Simulated assay, not measured.
Amino acid sequence: MSQARSRRMIYQTDATRDKIILQAERCFADAGFFATQMKDIASAVGMSRNTLYRYYQDKTDLALAILERTLARMAEALAQQVTHALSAPGSGHLRLSQLLFSLNDQVNSVDERFVAEFDAYFSGARVPDDFRARLQASISIHNLAPLTELLSQGQADGSIRADFAPDLVMVTLINAIRALLQRLILRGQLLIETDTDALAAIPRLHLTLLLDGLKNQPSTAQTSATSASASPSPNPSPSPVAPIAPIAPIAPNEVTP
């Protein structure tokens, strides 16, 4: 641990740290992550900037602390709903569909906007060196295990395709849904691909397409065979086909030169 960080921690209290986090979240929600400065947060908390810097060395340090809490809160909420879905009636695919549409209708716009703006700002060379390590230390990936279990149940009951590992499907689903959501948050009213009136329907359409892709579809060959065996024959008693008479050989003098 650096000496500068050690000196800052000497003057820290949990109550003040929580107050800073709370006011910073409000500032980011009101003015946006990009426009909010440390002086704005210090003013909202009612402290000097020097005192604020004793707790967080810069805006990046403070933003990471908020991101850790935000993602942990979101993961905990997801785990609770998925745990409930594990014991609900119906196929795995049905329960997954109900879960994802329910989550879509309960999006915390404040948390999602902060994560979207954080990801937009901290990309490429701006990503802190300890970013991955800090998130791994503060967020338990075990909170996502129930979602993997739900996918496994769907594969076991035959309602979800089993040609992909459930943990890989879980990661793909979460990131696909979040990527579109963040795009709509940051650029929604400015998208030129469609009218603004249609934006509200896009998340549910996206979920429908993802869920359709997860359905356990029978192969084309199996479908054709099943259809052929199930469909009544148009001619249940066909007449026997007469044998074809052999073709007589052509004599040499009959060939046209």
Rank of each mutant, 00 (worst) to 15 (best):
Y55M: 02
S91W: 04
E149F: 00
T223F: 04
T226M: 01
I20F: 04
Q153E: 15
S140L: 03
L67F: 05
S123M: 04
M38R: 10
L184N: 12
A176V: 01
A77K: 11
A4Q: 15
V255N: 05
V171R: 12
T223E: 06
A200E: 14
F131C: 06
Q98H: 12
L147A: 04
P166G: 12
E76Y: 03
V169W: 05
I160S: 06
P232I: 09
H84E: 11
M47N: 01
Q98C: 10
D14N: 07
N50Y: 14
S239D: 11
F122S: 00
R178V: 04
L62Y: 00
R132D: 14
Q80L: 11
Q57N: 10
L190I: 04
Q57E: 10
F28W: 11
I202Q: 13
Y11F: 13
A116R: 11
Q12Y: 02
D157Q: 04
D119Q: 09
L144M: 11
A31M: 11
I177D: 06
Q98A: 13
P252M: 03
Q37W: 00
K59W: 00
F118Q: 00
A31N: 09
E112C: 07
P249Q: 08
Y53I: 02
A156L: 13
Q80F: 04
E193R: 04
I185P: 01
L135A: 08
A63N: 08
P234N: 02
L135Q: 09
L94A: 15
G158L: 09
L96Q: 08
